[in-house]
């Protein structure tokens, strides 16, 4: 079990956990600011960004694609804001117009360009291929100390670790202004905190998380991890510190359980092929959120009776 586990499952699990945590961290603030769907929009526009980067460079290499995706995310945010202001349209609809159109453009570009020789298609963009990120040269736990085997780790692991660390550091550094401006923007402004820049920074950080995770695990996990773990955590507590801790725990648990269910679940039911790990991770995070909605201690609104009378 040991050798096979290290070779086949250790790296996908680690990448899954890192991606989930990287998305859940900014997700906490997006949820509280009622911008949860920014994550949805970003993960859609990543596709045209990547396709354009591919068309320009002609190769599938990581950094141009990351740049392209991040560029597309910024373009989308600017477009949403422009449409909202110029057309005086409510933000939700402006967002809907922007990300669907950009996604359509991405699909069209993809179909038009000759990408048959490389591994780039819509399905891959949507649900990634976590299972394929295996560590071939590992032959047991000892490989973790073997520099030769370590050099052969999937590059996604290193990138994801760097991005997750960066996001964690950013969250810690900007914790106080972020918390203040999330809960009371007017007060934060009077203290001299640049709330506009902070808000844009949060979106860019979310885009960074989305792009890095997208590269490894596909966009569906990205949306699920932006929203489900922080939303479930929101129902557990009234303190932001505790909420973030819960959300990280939920994200990690979803990644682990989702991966295990996807890989071994079908075997328990007599099947012999694994199912999509990305989809399973999203499903598990949904189940966690569902149970939180039913049983979490702080699930109802403050000041509302447990069974609200609706008209």
């Amino acid at each position: 079990m040991g050798a096979e586990f290290v070779q086949l499952s250790l790296t996908p699990l680690a990448i899954g956990i890192l991606a989930a945590v990287a998305c859940a961290l900014p997700g906490n603030f997006l949820i509280l600011r009622r911008q949860a769907l920014i994550g949805d929009a970003i993960s859609h526009v990543v596709l045209p960004g990547i396709v354009v980067a591919f068309l320009i460079t002609g190769t599938i290499s990581t950094w141009p694609m990351m740049l392209g995706a991040a560029g597309a995310a910024v373009v989308a945010v600017v477009l949403i804001e422009a449409i909202r202001r110029l057309g005086r349209i409510e933000p939700g609809a402006a967002m809907g117009v922007t990300f669907t159109s950009l996604f359509a453009a991405g699909v069209l570009l993809l179909e038009q360009s000759d990408t048959s020789s490389v591994h780039l298609d819509v399905e891959h963009a949507l649900y990634g291929n976590l299972e394929s990120l295996i560590w071939l040269s590992a032959d047991g736990w000892g490989s973790l100390l073997d520099p030769q085997a370590l050099a052969d780790l999937p590059p996604e692991l290193g990138r994801m670790a760097v991005v997750t660390l960066l996001i964690a550091v950013l969250t810690a550094v900007f914790w106080r202004p972020l918390k203040l401006s999330t809960f009371d923007e007017g007060f934060a402004k009077t203290l001299g905190i640049p709330t506009g820049a902070l808000s844009l920074g949060l979106v860019v950080t979310a885009a960074l998380a989305a792009v890095a995770a997208f590269d490894a695990v596909g966009s569906i996990i990205v949306i699920a991890m932006f929203i489900c773990p922080p939303a479930a955590a929101r129902l557990m507590t009234n303190r932001l510190e505790v909420q973030v801790a819960w959300s990280i725990a939920f994200a990690a648990v979803s990644a682990v359980l989702g991966y295990v269910f996807a890989g071994y679940g079908p075997l328990w039911f007599g099947g012999n092929d694994a199912v999509s790990a990305a989809g399973m991770i999203a499903t598990v995070s949904g189940m966690i959120l569902g149970s939180a909605c039913l049983f979490a201690p702080h699930r109802s609104r403050v000041g509302v009776p447990p069974e609200p009378e609706q008209t």
């Binding site: 949860a36 769907l37 994550g39 949805d40 649900y127 699920a224 949904g286 909605c293």
Partner: peptide
């Protein structure tokens, strides 16, 4: 206490993920 946008995002991603499975 979750706002509608969080509910939309959660349902969207979870159902879609399950569909992919």
């Amino acid at each position: 206490r979750l706002a509608e946008d969080a509910a939309i995002g959660a349902v969207l991603s979870v159902f879609f993920g399950f569909g992919i499975v």
